[in-house]
Design a protein around this nucleic acid. Sequence first.
DNA 1: TTGTAGGCGTTATCAG
DNA 2: CTGATAACGCCTACAA
Lengths: 330, 330
Amino acid sequence: MARIVDVAALAGVSTATVSRVLNGKAVRADLEKAVRKAIDELGYTPNRTARSLRRQHSEVIALVLPDIENPFFTSLARGVEDIAQEAGLSVVLCNTDEDPDKQERYLRIADDENMAGVIVAPAGPSALLRHLTERERAVVVVDRAVPDDVDQVTFDNLELGRRATRALAERGFRRIACVTGPESTPTAVARAQGWREELAEAGLPAPEDLLVHVNFRVDGGEDAMTRLLELATPPDAVLATNNLVGVGALRVLSATDQVDLGLGIIGDLPFVTSPVDNVSLLQLRPREMGLSAARMLVQRIRGEAGPARQIVQPTQPVRLGAPRESGPAR
Amino acid sequence: MARIVDVAALAGVSTATVSRVLNGKAVRADLEKAVRKAIDELGYTPNRTARSLRRQHSEVIALVLPDIENPFFTSLARGVEDIAQEAGLSVVLCNTDEDPDKQERYLRIADDENMAGVIVAPAGPSALLRHLTERERAVVVVDRAVPDDVDQVTFDNLELGRRATRALAERGFRRIACVTGPESTPTAVARAQGWREELAEAGLPAPEDLLVHVNFRVDGGEDAMTRLLELATPPDAVLATNNLVGVGALRVLSATDQVDLGLGIIGDLPFVTSPVDNVSLLQLRPREMGLSAARMLVQRIRGEAGPARQIVQPTQPVRLGAPRESGPAR
DNA sequence: TTGTAGGCGTTATCAG
DNA sequence: CTGATAACGCCTACAA
């Protein structure tokens, strides 16, 4: 592997000059030309490890996610990657599996490797996260708000719950249930609170047996839906507050063909196969969230950012049935 | 950030001794104890960049995939990650978007960063890939075979096509169509060839208008399915040769409720919502493929591997309807 | 077994 | 604007 000294020797200059050419600093035109020629001839590319060691930070950012198999996060990752690529950064994807310990481990690695920055959707509180922000490392928190003074891109989850509920109420449903995530998950709680408040405002009942907490996954949605349908007085509509729970609900629905039951889903459904013409969809477009977060991070890395910013990511209006373009990936 | 010299000073030993403790080499017991205590007190962790520079390879492996939003690949990634974690390696996920140029760029980066190894599902032929294997870097190719002499984990795609077709024939279907990927995609062609051969063997017709090449995505499946249903003599069953095409086919089917039409799908359907009781599923379990590939890579990195091995990843037998446990992630 | 010291490849400082 | 040189933090001969 060619090194910078080889290039310097071939071009008849010092390594310092080669380095300057590499980094776009002022160099006499003829020397620059000679250096570029040498680089070409040797097929030289800078050793990024050495560069990182010297510069005290690498050209890699970590994207720390709780579940890499959830399309919400892969889509978000896709957005991050697109911006990172533009900025000449590579992305390391880390899967915490909703495990705070794993999360700490990955954040530690990001620190040890002197990564340029970190984007994290936190699985619980993190001492290391605070530590990183205090040490002025570039950090952006996504999707799940934390109390720390750090750049964040999140949804207004209360508002999401309200809007999705309102859409169902406006369609004439009167007994609207809510399936949401565990009480330990703030986004789940906030969306359910939005459901509660919107129903109160519309003068509709919100009995607690219509609020079901399950895990935020497909089987959670299935369980909840089954339970709701078995109720003595079942709901006439159901709000699923995330994508996977929505998938679970749809499965039960399409297996039992309950055509009359209204359904609302907060989240995107890339691989759904049953018709959703009758489903009120509040699409979150996680890719956009990834774009926002990555842009913030790049600014922070470049030192162009001031005090911590907390952005509320806008979403699509609720609509009936998925528009074609949001279906397949790409 | 504490450095190795700080630990050495605090423990009253040389940096060499600290390094030895860190790397599990023989050190006098009392010194080792002192060193560990100092490490604890300072919260020291080795700087991985410096270590990489010195050792000439890092503890990171690159996973180069053509489409990070396809559940097949995220699941595969999940498997890779699990093994990597055990082996103390981090995984960098790189999305090539089926673009050979992007792929070359990422492979180049993996090389420049002295990564410990690379797992790649190739999007077309790659000069760099050959270059890497020739330079004895740890490389494993997954999912899509290449002619090079390199570790590989792939499916027997011809056999997959045959088995899935046979399952449909055994269910009594007589006019079985095949929807597969572009003719430029070897796996798509091989699976279609399996379809052709199996039909021939069963004495069933395989007219070319029942073989449809589309893109290997959801919209491809939708288009193909629509086209097939409009045929003067439509098929009585359809084989979809990958997961996304299968999703597209299911969408059309559940929108038109063609209950009589047989369907076979090669691939896993984690987020499907319509019932699949009548679908012959040949599950590939990509996570297992990721596990195999990562194990091979780890062996190669450790120098425990000899000549290049080419593994055929086993799959599940064809079955009717998805077993419960393969539905939701996890 | 332990310590000393050189070097991995790059960039930044400081003279010239 | 250019060149020599000293770091960046770690590991590993080599010598003791």
